[in-house]
């Protein structure tokens, strides 16, 4: 843990604190607990998808298809339960169905990547379009506003609430805790299991991993299974919080999620995806996009600010890398 904090994560915490205080000086409401609740709620879906994107990044590539997978899984499952008149189906069954769809779709990616040795990025650029296209062409284009009962209940399940001086109540959504648990589990998986360490090894150098006796196919298979399951869950979170199933509405927003993973150290040679970093990256971007509105900054400026922060974060990472390189050059 100490090791983690010394690095990129500490820089992110610093940026978050500075921005937060700066925002707070302009609009003190931003510092309130209620605002924290609303930022975390707004981050639930991004944070979950970021976990899926990060896992693939760790095994060595940028996945572009996770939002398409999540959308596909959510819409197909909701449509099935609604059309089959299974509105009373239990939450567990619905989520398991979405997880299964997510896994199948991500394993199609794995097939092309592993069996045909194609680059992850190129394969998923193709399948992103493919999944979205199939969803709209063969499954449906209509909005489903009547979700199964268990999902409707989940949409308003809170674990804590705060009422401000104007009498408006802010709630901490239960899914925030669920996402936190998922992050902890993935962190444990990556840090304390051989599978997790092998995933990092493959991402760093696939040839070296093979020479070390690591089964690349099997490791990537398992990682894609987990990432597919998480993408399916993330899709369900999105539909649930929206209280409507819209096919492929989020497809196209992949880069914002990937940016969060990059900010979290996904692009740095030393870490290649850290769980804490990813969480901080997601939070940082949510902090900016949610609060610029409160600061009265026009929405077209948001993208510019977000872009600037991403560039600053990545430059900081690479500068740290560059000083390392400099040291190496001097000593050899």
């Amino acid at each position: 843990m100490k090791k983690l904090l010394k690095s990129n994560e500490l820089v992110l915490v610093g940026i978050i604190l500075i921005l937060w205080v700066a925002f707070g000086l302009v609009n003190p409401n931003i510092l309130s607990i209620s605002n924290v609740f609303s930022i975390t709620r707004a981050s639930i879906v991004t944070a979950t998808f970021a976990l899926a994107a990060m896992l693939v990044m760790i095994v060595g590539g940028v996945d572009i298809s996770f939002l398409a997978i999540g959308s596909f899984a959510m819409y197909v499952v909701v449509k099935y339960f609604v059309e089959m008149q299974l509105l009373g189906a239990s939450m567990a069954v619905i989520f398991l169905a979405a997880i299964a769809v997510g896994i199948v779709l991500h394993l199609i990616n794995w097939f092309f990547i592993d069996r045909l040795s194609l680059p992850i990025f190129i394969v998923t650029v193709g399948t992103q379009s493919l999944y979205k296209g199939y969803l709209l062409a063969f499954v449906g284009t209509s909005y489903i506003t009547r979700l199964p009962d268990s999902l409707r209940a989940l949409a308003t399940r809170y674990v804590a609430s705060v009422t401000d001086q104007n009498g408006i109540t802010y709630n901490l959504h239960i899914l925030v805790l669920v996402v936190a648990v998922m992050y902890v589990l993935v962190h444990l998986l990556l840090t304390y299991t051989t599978l997790g360490r092998h995933a990092y090894a493959i991402g760093a150098d696939a040839t070296a991993a093979k020479r070390a006796g690591i089964n690349i196919s099997k490791t990537r298979f398992l990682i894609f299974v987990i990432a597919g399951a998480i993408a399916g869950i993330a899709g369900m979170f999105h539909g649930t919080l929206n209280r409507t199933a819209v096919p492929a509405d989020i497809v196209g927003g992949e880069l914002a999620v990937i940016a969060a993973v990059f900010l979290g150290g996904g692009a740095s040679k030393r870490a290649r995806g850290s769980v804490l970093g990813t969480a901080l990256g997601v939070f940082l971007l949510a902090l900016i996009s949610n609060n610029l509105i409160l600061l009265g900054i026009p929405s077209y400026w948001q993208q510019a600010v977000t872009g600037t922060i991403i560039i600053i974060g990545i430059v900081l990472q690479s500068l740290r890398g560059a000083t390392q390189l400099g040291k190496k050059g001097a000593s050899s």
Partner: peptide
Amino acid sequence: ALFPNMTVAENIMM
């Protein structure tokens, strides 16, 4: 054939 994103200990015992 080492892994740059891992520590000395982990590389040795990989």
